[in-house]
Design a protein around this nucleic acid. Structure first.
Lengths: 195, 195
DNA sequence: GTCTATATCCAGATAGAC
DNA sequence: GTCTATCTGGATATAGAC
């Protein structure tokens, strides 16, 4: 089995970081080449489909990576309510630590391409579907009703995404903390009132 | 007092619609000229600051407009819990009716410019601040604790923004309905448990 | 004031030397 | 496979005719 060249991975990671901060049309291939210390032509050597192929790969790799990170945070605390607040607390800290740059790796692209690029829109939709499925599984191990678990997973992803919008705009981690408190309240309510 | 020319308004509205759908770097001035049926030069005649001035004006006009629309929806129903679910229901229907194009007028720009353009970032942050203040006032008339009212306003805006991300990506109004149910639950909890 | 033509630059993409 | 030079189109922005 052939080893992936290091250059290819560097390009993908640099692209992921730039797309996350500046979006899809806002990121140029020349900036990606510069950030990955790769010659411009290597981008087309490894990604013959050009910018779109590069973006699709970053969506489909950084999306699941991010999910695994959040699930690891959630799994690191026993009590579900505390786990939720812990995960949001870490997200808030990480956001502030990166100058309010590193929030959701795919949300900006998702909004940008929703009306303009079916290939990338589908990629973002499929990543979000995986997040919802994984989040549902996590909550289903803690609340009895499966519909309730799914609702909590939906809410957690949505309120986190919205908190990232407000926090990046205001350069203030407070929205993410507020989102964590609301999600903790919803979680506690589901634990207290098993339907 | 001089009347604003009709052309200027048409340009601003076309720009607002395109920025909302395709974002800031994704929208070209030529597309704005075409959509507003205005000659290209008129953009710089009315907006000498170019693309950035045009974007700032659309943020600062469409943002408050959207807030007034949501507040009108909330005020149209007496019971607070029903009002919240009603507002989300209308948002879901409008999203589907526009082919999943017309969600939040400034969220895409907000994410795109957060790390790249201080003028526009500040504009989006100030609009969000007004939303939070107005939402806090609305909830404060219905729940006693002011901190609780502010928390509900934050949550409502964040979960709506997140729902728009998921709904546009999946071309499905369900996330917005799910968000409405969660916000209704949070509102009911605040009404039932006056701290 | 309205509109057209154009200047200038940078994007994505490609060809081909090494 | 790596890298450079370049093509082509479209972007923002401007000049200036009408």
């Amino acid at each position: 089995m052939a080893e992936q060249p290091d250059t290819r991975r560097r390009i993908r990671e640099a692209a992921g970081a730039l797309f996350r901060r500046n979006g899809y049309p806002g990121t140029g291939l020349k900036a990606i080449a510069a950030a990955s210390d790769a010659p411009f032509g290597s981008i087309y050597h490894f990604f013959p489909g050009g910018k779109q192929q590069l973006a699709e790969e970053t969506i489909r790799t950084s999306g699941p990576e991010y999910m695994r990170m959040v699930l690891a945070l959630l799994d690191s605390v026993d009590d579900p309510v505390d786990a939720v607040e812990h995960a949001f607390g870490v997200a808030a800290a990480q956001l502030a630590a990166t100058g309010y740059a590193d929030a959701c790796p795919i949300a900006t692209i998702a909004l940008e391409v929703a009306s303009t690029n079916e290939v990338l829109r589908t990629a973002t939709a499929e990543v979000f579907d995986e997040w919802i499925a994984a989040g549902t599984e996590w909550f289903a191990r803690r609340v009895t009703d499966r519909a309730e678990a799914r609702s909590l997973a939906y809410s957690m992803i949505m309120i986190l995404e919205g908190a990232f919008v407000l926090a990046r705009a205001s350069r203030d981690p407070e929205p993410v903390h507020a989102a964590g408190r609301s999600m903790a309240a919803l979680t506690r309510r589901a634990l207290d009132r098993p339907d």
